[in-house]
């Protein structure tokens, strides 16, 4: 009898189970304007099975979001794990939708499912992509805006993985500040 290498039939488990959510922001009937859970996965193979069968972000209509969060964390500020958290925010110009959006989002997903932030990956709650006519955004959400060590480590690794030039500054903002901001910009807690 032939012995088959287990590598060829056992799926590769991820550290976490993840849930991919979809949100459409411009629906005409507000109560139906909700997050829709697309699917959950906890192996490398199932991640790709999902990723390969959904629309690229650049093909979504304006007003749509994808959110990838650890299973059990809802993709909103109000969730217990997000309430005292914040996000590393990447803002993209309109031109970058063609050149960078899909590439940045995939890289973000790979950082999350691959646990790229070492022990600080425990601070990661998820990531969100907002597709908007005025400019797209991608963010990694972490659980505690006071955990400077985790936030700065995650920010450094993330910036490097995206290939953002050192001279470009990215900011980390608490959800509390974003929720209560008066103008269009939120002050950065870390850069």
């Amino acid at each position: 009898q032939k012995v088959v290498n287990p590598e060829t039939y056992i799926k590769h488990p991820l550290q976490n189970r993840w849930a991919l959510w979809f949100f459409k922001n411009d629906c005409t009937f507000a109560p139906l304007c909700v997050f829709v859970l697309i699917s959950k996965f906890d192996t490398v193979e199932d991640f790709w099975a999902l990723y390969n069968h959904i629309q690229l972000s650049s093909n979504l209509m304006s007003g749509c979001d994808y959110s990838l969060f650890k299973d059990g964390i809802e993709p909103m500020w109000e969730d217990e794990r997000n309430r005292r958290g914040g996000r590393w925010l990447i803002t993209l110009s309109k031109q970058q939708r063609k050149s960078d959006l899909d590439r940045f989002w995939l890289e973000t997903l790979l950082c999350l499912v691959g646990e790229a932030f070492d022990d600080y990956s425990d601070d990661v709650c998820g990531a969100v992509i907002n597709v908007r006519a005025k400019g797209d955004k991608i963010a990694i959400w972490t659980t505690d805006y006071e955990n400077k060590e985790a936030i700065t480590h995650i920010g450094r690794v993330y910036k490097e993985r995206l290939g953002v030039p050192p001279k470009v500054i990215i900011g980390y903002q608490s959800h509390a500040d974003t929720a209560t901001k008066s103008g269009s910009t939120t002050k950065n807690k870390f850069v």
């Binding site: 799926k11 590769h12 488990p13 193979e45 990723y51 790979l110 691959g114 022990d119 993985r161």
Partner: peptide, 20 residues
């Protein structure tokens, strides 16, 4: 330890035939 996968490892599985 954590189950960490680097980007090259993950990308290597993108077009693998699906496990059933």
């Amino acid at each position: 330890g954590k189950r960490q996968y680097n980007r090259e490892f993950l990308l290597g599985f993108q077009f693998m035939p699906a496990c059933i």
